[in-house]
Computed example of a mutant assay.
Amino acid sequence: MIELLRGFPNNVVAIRAHGEVTKKDYDEVLIPAVEKTLKTHDKVRILYELGPEFDGYDAGAAWEDFKVGMEHFSRWERIAVITDVEWIGLATRLFSVFLPGTIRVYPHAEAAKARLWITQAA
């Protein structure tokens, strides 16, 4: 499940994933939030927090994640991923070389640092 987090500037889409993330979560929560932000901003920033209760992605969610990234390829400004899940941190770092913008991975112990970085002026 993906939930939107409140209290961020309107150029930041902040979400928290817990349980299993599905295609429906992307279709109903993440994609509409990104598209709404891109109507008023040239670039979007993403804060993606994967809590300890995160169980993984279904195949549909993994495909939607890829599609969202490619559809808005040049419009990612910053992405902060907060996770203690080792494979997600590693995969994020590996794929970051293929995406524009800056991507950083933070452990949960540094969540406040991630939130500060994602909201700071460029």
Rank of each mutant, 00 (worst) to 15 (best):
T92K: 05
V29D: 04
K36S: 09
H41Q: 09
I79T: 12
L99I: 14
E28W: 01
E53H: 11
I79L: 14
H72P: 02
D25I: 02
T22H: 03
A80N: 06
H41M: 09
E53F: 11
M70H: 11
G51S: 15
I82A: 05
T92F: 02
E35V: 06
K43C: 07
H72K: 02
K39F: 09
A91P: 00
A91T: 12
L38M: 10
P32Q: 04
V34G: 01
A80F: 04
I88H: 13
E53M: 10
D65C: 03
T37K: 11
K43Y: 07
T92H: 03
G51H: 12
Y26F: 08
E28L: 10
L94R: 13
A59F: 11
V21Y: 00
D58N: 13
I79E: 08
G56H: 02
W63L: 15
V97Y: 13
D27F: 11
T40S: 14
D55I: 08
T40C: 09
T40V: 12
D55R: 12
I82H: 07
K36G: 05
G60F: 02
R45H: 06
L94Q: 13
A80G: 07
T83L: 01
I79A: 09
F54R: 07
T92C: 05
P100C: 06
D65M: 03
L99E: 06
P52D: 15
E64H: 07
A62Y: 12
V29R: 04
A62L: 15
E49W: 11
W76F: 13
D25K: 00
A80W: 00
K23F: 01
T37Q: 10
V44F: 05
E49C: 13
F98Y: 11
G56L: 00
D58G: 04
I88V: 15
T83G: 02
L50F: 10
F66H: 13
F54H: 04
E86P: 11
F73I: 11
W63E: 14
L94D: 09
R45Y: 06
E64I: 06
D55N: 12
P32R: 07
F54N: 03
L38E: 06
F54Q: 04
A91I: 10
A33N: 03
A80E: 03
E35P: 01
D25E: 07
I79C: 09
L90Y: 04
L38I: 09
E71Q: 06
G51D: 15
W76V: 05
K36C: 05
I31G: 03
G69F: 09
E71L: 06
D27R: 15
I79Y: 04
M70W: 14
L38V: 08
H72V: 04
H72R: 03
L47M: 08
D25C: 02
F98M: 10
V85N: 11
W76H: 08
G89C: 08
